[in-house]
């Protein structure tokens, strides 16, 4: 039987093959970024050349500034940031409290309630979308940020699950020792469990940041006033108005993706590890 391992230079062959595959993947997945970037720097006259130019000449850096002049992009950025801050605050607070309880306290019905929590992971968003909208509309909250912030304070089932799994790994002796020292449960959580669970808390914050920053349907449904638009909604509004200004659209899209990308670069080790853990345990 033909066996590669008997050939000299097998390792060279597999190395070259490996890098070739990786580079091909990288080209295919990264080229759209380049195309977007190149387009963002093109002038009107360069946009509709056939064949399209690979390098913008001259590079019109002013396109990025032009986005801010055409639409209140600065306002969109601030709006998205406000929503992100509130959501991260709400999720971190609630997920920590709830996960702590599910992971480390005993109470009747805990397992059933935890099972219910897991079951809600399976409920598709569209079933609650319409009635939630009606609820918030009847409360007069359409065109405010409340519908986009309040639910975060209930905690996301997925993030609660992630944090609970993490807190389960902390030895219970720590709680017992702190109790003997006279600490109450809130103090135990604040001074012992939460600091140890920092990796999970960061994960919750990062997930929430990206989810809220990237959300399109929520703002689309609840916000009408362009002054209140988020970056994602602002982009679609921009697209509707400027169908042919692909240079500006690409500049806007590029700016919209920078914050989650920066965050990803900072937190990538933890994020990828956490995602993987969630995947296996799910």
């Amino acid at each position: 039987m033909f066996n590669f391992s008997k050939i000299n230079g097998r390792s060279l062959f597999t190395t070259v093959r490996g890098y070739t595959i990786l580079i091909l993947f990288a080209i295919v997945f990264l080229i759209p970024f380049y195309w977007m970037f190149a387009t963002a720097l093109k002038g009107d006259d360069q946009l509709f050349q056939i064949p399209p130019a690979w390098l913008p000449n001259p590079a019109v850096w002013d396109n990025f500034a032009q986005v801010f002049r055409e639409v209140p992009f600065g306002k969109f950025l601030i709006n998205s940031t406000v929503l992100v801050i509130w959501n991260v605050f709400g999720q971190v607070l609630s997920c920590t409290l709830v996960a702590y309880s599910f992971a480390r306290l005993r109470f009747p019905g805990r397992n059933i309630l935890f099972f219910v929590l897991l079951a809600t992971l399976m409920i598709p968003r569209q079933v609650t979308l319409v009635p939630q909208f009606i609820l918030f509309a009847k409360l007069g909250w359409v065109n405010t940020y409340l519908p986009l912030i309040l639910p975060a304070f209930g905690g996301s089932p997925f993030l609660i699950f992630l944090m609970r799994q993490y807190m389960m790994t902390i030895p219970l002796d720590l709680d017992a020792a702190a109790t003997i020292d006279g600490a109450n449960r809130l103090q135990i959580l604040r001074h012992i469990i939460a600091p140890i669970s920092m990796p999970a808390i960061v994960l919750v914050a990062v997930f929430t940041f990206t989810d809220v920053w990237n959300d399109f349907m929520g703002p689309l449904i609840y916000l009408n006033d362009p002054d209140k638009f988020t970056v994602t909604l602002g982009l679609s509004f921009f697209q509707g108005a400027k169908e042919t200004s692909w240079d500006l659209l690409m500049a806007g899209a590029l700016m919209a993706m920078i914050p989650p990308m920066i965050l990803f670069f900072i937190a990538q080790k933890r994020l990828l590890g956490g995602l993987a853990a969630a995947g296996i345990k799910g």
């Binding site: 997945f29 970024f33 195309w35 899209a253 590029l254 919209a256 993706m257 990803f264």
Partner: peptide, 16 residues
């Protein structure tokens, strides 16, 4: 690099 497109907002990805 290969994970990067996943963190892009869906609307930006769609426009691209």
């Amino acid at each position: 690099m290969l994970y990067l497109p996943y963190v892009v907002p869906s609307i930006a990805a769609t426009l691209v």
